[in-house]
Design a protein around this nucleic acid. Structure first.
Lengths: 198, 198, 198, 198
DNA sequence: TATGAATGAGCCTTCATTCAT
DNA sequence: CATGAATGAAGGCTCATTCAT
């Protein structure tokens, strides 16, 4: 029933295993689809019986929540630090998009699952927390863009630029391959260059 | 058993009804998810019994195929005409993206379903035709971009520009609302402006 | 709703077509199974739509009844004529088995369907007529055997001989092939020879 | 998912339960028909939920395979032992038919199911193994008959004798009732007596 | 007569989840 | 912690049958 052990040693082991389950789930959900993958198949991939999954998650949807948190939580934190920190405004966009692309690439499979299940996340009451986080992140990006726009560092309409940026960054998960030629920061710089007008 | 009647009058009736089914399916799948919507629910929305769907489609997946064809087929055709036609090269990108955005907006729900089920389409043998069409379209866009790049009309790396463009245009389906302030062509112009460097 | 036309010309046409349906049904049921063949498949084999079948039969089971009648009715009649007729007792068995084998061979497919659906025929109330006919036929054969036994023309126990005879004759439908080397009467003679002790 | 446990204790338990399912299925299918019996009904008869069946069999047809193997496997083995063993040739037929009739009687319901579904077994690719076994058994019987014929112990044509024997023995399943007057060997002796000419 | 369309009931199967061991 | 067994609900799909045209 998904109860974490209280002992510190066992607790750490539990956390490690739980993370393995999340990552394997992201991998297989990304490739085969969340709905199309049964808990039994998932468990088989992990070398355990289906019931075993329920020691770490109370439901299949709980797994989905965990996958999504894995992406949003650290990104939002990093973004907040950046904006609150000493980085010059003119460089915040580059760095913010850099962090973001790095996360999309690093958690590529988690991202794909998130995009695949977007209709669930956007639609139902229980996903309010995830939606709030996403809105918060988009708000941060928009703030940075707003200052860039005011300073004349942005091409065209800011609303459209924001949408375009969201589209291109998230889409990166679809085409990026681990042994690709470009680093996260190079990709991010390319995107920002478009917004800046070269 | 999904056999189109041979008589012209009945054939037309059949085609019309089939299209209604495809569109309703796109609507419901986009909102609630393909896997999360049962054929029964879908049929209920159409005011028919579940079995009735199978007069028009061999399977639930057949419906998905039809939804995807609805987007790709006309778009690919229009794009080919444009590239083969008399439009000056320097203006082809604007028009091509215009057509594309218009299609994404017009078939917004079909697009969302396509994106949602991308893992199925990209993964399995039976979807080769759909993949081929998509690759063909991307190839056309890439050709146009290549000429623009050669003529110095593009900011930054062309490969990245293509990926960015794919991301932003397709993402349009996620945020566009019918009574929005911008027309398809205005959105497209905004996107192209980014690639051109303002 | 399976109503035969009253006009003589149309009536004959109707009967002919109905017979065709029965025979085609026997053919395809024998090969693929009664339950495994849908009315639609059957109709497709006849070049008509599924609904068309219902002009000749009120239900799929009605077709099965017709198939079974096709075997039992003429056989029972012939058998009664033989037993009531002038044929010497000592030769009745040979002739009776000859008629029987001929029928099994001629209506091979109908027989196979009958054997396949035996559990339905033996089990339910509505098939009383068919069961009665079969019992009547077996009774006739038993009568003939009884006289042969009394006259010392039979090997072993008569009850067992009857069962054996039923088994071997009916089984003929399973192995007989149209262009076989033996005629119906030769096969029948072979069977009778076994009962007679050579 | 029909996976046998590896542990010996659980494995035995699994095998026992699986056999119970096969036998119950044979009982119900024989009486009501394979196609006419739903998995739900079958499961209800076993006191489990329908899904439970699928722990032991991959599909309803898998059950059918198991039923047929139950008859053929031990019979073929016994027959091979007999033919390879020290039994004098002149007595092999009696004993072989004895084994065979005993099996038909003992597995009466399984036999009836086999006969009922013969069209499926004879017709499709996936049943090759079952067909091969049956052919092998018939081949053994034919070998024994061939020697008997050569030694003048058989009445009439051997091919026809084989067909007749197959017919009468298999047909035994149709009429035999558990509390009948005759033992399996008595029935077998009666059949052999017919072939031998009394 | 025949057909295309539709229905409604039911079927086989899958699957998330539970629980005794 | 983990597993094998089982469940109950639901899902996709088939099919005999009806009926307006």
């Amino acid at each position: 029933m998904s109860t974490r052990p209280t002992s510190p040693a066992l607790g750490a082991r539990y956390d490690r295993r739980r993370e393995e389950v999340v990552d394997e789930a992201a991998r297989v959900f990304a490739r085969h689809g969340y709905a199309e993958t049964s808990v039994q198949q998932l468990a088989a991939g992990l070398g355990i019986a289906a019931g075993g999954i329920y020691h770490y998650f109370e439901s299949k949807q709980g797994l989905l929540v965990a996958i999504c948190e894995t992406i949003m939580d650290p990104l939002l934190e990093q973004a907040r630090e950046l904006v609150a920190g000493p980085t010059p405004e003119a460089e915040q966009l580059r760095i913010l998009v850099g962090l973001w692309v790095a996360q999309v690439i690093d958690r590529r499979e988690h991202m794909l699952v998130f995009q695949q299940q977007r209709h669930v996340i956007d639609g139902s009451r229980e996903w309010r927390a995830a939606r709030t986080d996403r809105k918060a992140f988009e708000g941060l990006v928009d703030d940075v863009l707003a200052r860039d726009e005011a300073a004349g560092r942005i091409v065209g309409d800011r609303r459209l630029a924001l949408s375009a940026l969201l589209g291109m960054v998230n889409h990166t998960a679809q085409w990026y391959r681990p042994r690709g030629a470009l680093s996260a920061q190079q990709i991010a710089d390319g995107y920002v260059e478009l917004l800046r007008g070269g």
